[in-house]
Design a protein around this nucleic acid. Structure first.
Lengths: 341, 341
DNA sequence: CTGTTAGCGCATTCAG
DNA sequence: CTGAATGCGCTAACAG
């Protein structure tokens, strides 16, 4: 069984191709009875229009490309769910690609999406530099870009994320309010998001007249889980040895929070009695942790939803030749108090 | 800046469109120097071929469609990661869609993917019936199908999943070996996968001469999380009241495992001292749970990888007009022993 | 109301 | 080695 085309239907019903096309798009130009005949036939034979041909003709694919670093990261998968949900609603589809924290792969993803003729690209960029010029250039030609999550850059478009500094500051303040003073901050290697969180952490300390202690800062290489665990463990041991055990830990990413809680359990260090823990975490599992985790969770699904909606807005404006005023939207992250601090 | 086409390049270099086309695909027909000139120009101006036009011409999109029920479910997001990884390797791209456990949406997803001209579809079908005839029909025409995860159906194609009965039987046996006898099985409403797990559970009981007790079976409506929690709670209370508290729980899905562990903590029921717990769980977080969770975890990423590879195999065979012998591959699920039983 | 013509961008004949 | 002609399936402009 080969794929049915307008031509096939036209031949079968002794009509012309454009007539079929118009009938199926419910044009008022077509006689009611012929229309019904055509619709009936095409339903019966399960006609599906060829989106490639249509897009080639119309210049519109109704596909939005999405680039994240890792699909299975729960933060991103929640964003993706938000995007997918909105896209369904708007008759759009999405192509998802993974940049794997690698600028070269990211470039390739962008190129592929562009060659597929996506109507726009939603992206959480790998780095603060790398492909940003390229994205800017695309955005100002025929492929609009909306940036989410990692919004600390100069691209002139819509950017949706959270106020990381503020969220980190609040989390730190929660610890300080409970009289924790020696707070170990565990974060990733330099990148926009974690840097902002570090700043928030430091500001909270300063505001409370606590002097920032370099030894209470650990930067982990997040690319390999074993290295992360090893780094955290040796930091804990180092501090232990110097009789400088922190009374609380603030972890800057989901992964770090997760591993830290597991490692503390393994070392039989009781949370929060011996060390308190607050962290960024976007899993639904935080309440099942040991103990139930107090955490900062980002409105991930909503970030996805907003990013998608802004894209649609751009596409509409361009269609109607309307001026666009870009904004950067920083949503608030929730702090959920449970039992770990 | 408008998109560059072959025509633009041809005009700029005073050559014809076919010459450019051939040069860029590195055809031996083209003179080395002209080729270099063309390649240089197209690089400099960042030419990206129009995949729509190419696909329309060649009849191949190099896109594989993937349909899962929910992207953010960690089991599926791991499968997706496996698929994406393999697809990158093979120069394919994937379009991911969510069926949301709804046959009507599933049908729509299939139609959209077909209309986009995907070269094939990987799917974890919503139900054991619903769209299976349709899938079978597509598979035998021009859009091959590979089924993963929910493979308990009669479609004649490659099917990749795990042996659910076997895995459930092993998990149950682990409990029995530790002398738990009153085991509560919490599962979803009827579907292929959970039914098989139930069968495995019952077989293990039978083999150990334990009589299956209807009151120790709870079927939850997984579509709403609140309902799930309420159902579990009232079951626990009911059993409590009848002085029939189970000594162990076996949960059949990731979601159920997660909520159960949280609820038990909330009710101050100690695991495993008061009730032991083993469950299907595909999160990386199991070891951070309260207590670290003994669980059955499926080789999700590998399921995705295999499903994709089988699809490529089908496409190759069809191209070379080779006979295909379909198989159903049931991978083994690992049981990781931690501290909850 | 229906049909004719044209062209989206590309790859694939086949001439020259 | 290069170019002219053709068509993938569809829609849009126009003619009848």
């Amino acid at each position: 069984m080969k794929r049915l085309t307008l031509k096939d239907i036209a031949k079968a019903l002794n009509l012309s191709v454009p007539t079929i096309s118009k009938a199926l798009s419910d044009s008022h130009e077509i006689n009611k009875e012929t229309k019904e005949k055509i619709v009936a036939y095409s339903h019966e034979h399960n006609y599906q229009y060829n989106a490639l041909a249509r897009s080639l003709k119309t210049g519109k694919t109704n596909i939005i490309g999405v680039i994240v670093s890792t699909i299975s990261n729960s933060f991103f998968s929640q964003i993706l769910e938000g995007i997918e949900e909105s896209s369904l609603f708007q008759q759009y589809n999405i192509i998802i690609m993974q940049s794997r924290e690698n600028p070269a792969i990211e470039k390739k993803c962008i190129d592929i999406l562009y060659s597929k003729g996506v109507d726009g690209i939603l992206i959480s960029p790998v780095s603060d530099r790398a492909n940003l010029n390229y994205l800017e250039q695309l955005h100002h030609s025929d492929c609009p870009i909306v940036i989410f999550d990692r919004i600390n850059n100069s691209v002139n478009t819509f950017k949706i994320g959270i106020d990381n500094k503020k969220a980190a500051k609040r989390a730190t303040q929660e610890l300080i309010d409970r009289n924790y003073r020696n707070i170990l901050h565990i974060t990733g290697l330099a990148n926009g998001v974690t840097n902002e969180r570090l700043t928030g952490f430091q500001e909270a300390l300063k505001q409370n007249k606590i002097i920032f202690d370099e030894t209470l800062l650990l930067r982990c290489d997040l690319s390999q889980i074993q290295i992360v665990e090893q780094q955290i463990l040796s930091k804990l041991k180092e501090l232990e040895k110097e009789q400088h055990r922190p009374d609380a830990i603030f972890t800057a990413t989901d992964l770090l929070t997760n591993r830290t809680i597991g490692l503390l359990a393994q070392q039989k260090i009781k949370i929060p009695e011996q060390i308190a823990l607050i962290g960024f975490s976007n899993t639904n599992y935080a309440f099942s942790f040991n103990p139930p985790l107090t955490c900062v969770s980002q409105p991930a699904k909503n970030i996805g939803k907003l990013a998608f909606e802004k894209m649609i807005y751009i596409l509409e404006c361009r269609l109607k030749k309307r001026e666009i005023v870009y904004e950067t939207i920083e949503l608030d992250a929730d702090i959920t108090i449970r039992e770990s601090i």
